[in-house]
Design a protein around this nucleic acid. Structure first.
Lengths: 91, 91
DNA sequence: TAGATATTTAGACTATTATCTAAATATCTA
DNA sequence: TAGATATTTAGATAATAGTCTAAATATCTA
């Protein structure tokens, strides 16, 4: 996991919102775009960043590209946060 | 806690490094600056962002300003990540 | 209180990022 | 295969962010 990519990806509110929307189930790019007031092109840009951070997965279903959460990376992020904030002598 | 401030603060590698350095104990701005190759002014800028996100605390000791971790915010961040990545029907 | 030390603030510059429109690519179906 | 649909990519633009130097502020001490 590339730490810098993950934290940059999480830094944007729209991208965090995308993750929240995907909590209720996988969605195509088009379905996702209905939830946001930005253009499909901008949304695609955000999805590309989430993908490169491996926070979401993508698979093609016919003409559609379906996006879904990749929860395993969340666990890694939390492990890093534990590392950032736990005092050294504590553990 | 202001989510946007926290995630923006964590998005920069230097700031994450500052948090890591502070794991081994509180440090003054000057002591911190010895660990980094940027100017004191730039470091001060990063510390201001970490402060505004409440990821660190600051107290004055004479001429020095001492910075230390604020671990409780880390727990909040992790709770948010759980929220972002856990599937809705799971819980 | 004057000078030294510690740190921040102000202002400028450059790089990165979020957004848009227009064009390109991929897939399906008649 | 032509046209329609779904999505991404390219290129441009405006806002944001990281860094620097120089100046300002706060505290200590002789």
């Amino acid at each position: 996991m590339k730490q810098q990519l993950v934290f940059k990806a999480l830094a944007d509110g729209t991208r965090r919102d995308i993750l929240r929307v995907l909590r209720s189930g996988s969605k195509s790019a088009g379905e996702l775009s209905e939830e946001f007031s930005i253009t499909k092109a901008s949304l695609s840009h955000h999805l590309a960043l989430l993908l490169s951070a491996e926070l979401v997965r993508r698979e093609r279903r016919g003409q559609q590209l379906i996006y879904s959460l990749n929860s395993s990376v969340a666990e890694e992020v939390m492990a890093i946060l534990f590392g950032l904030f736990s005092h050294k002598e504590d553990s």
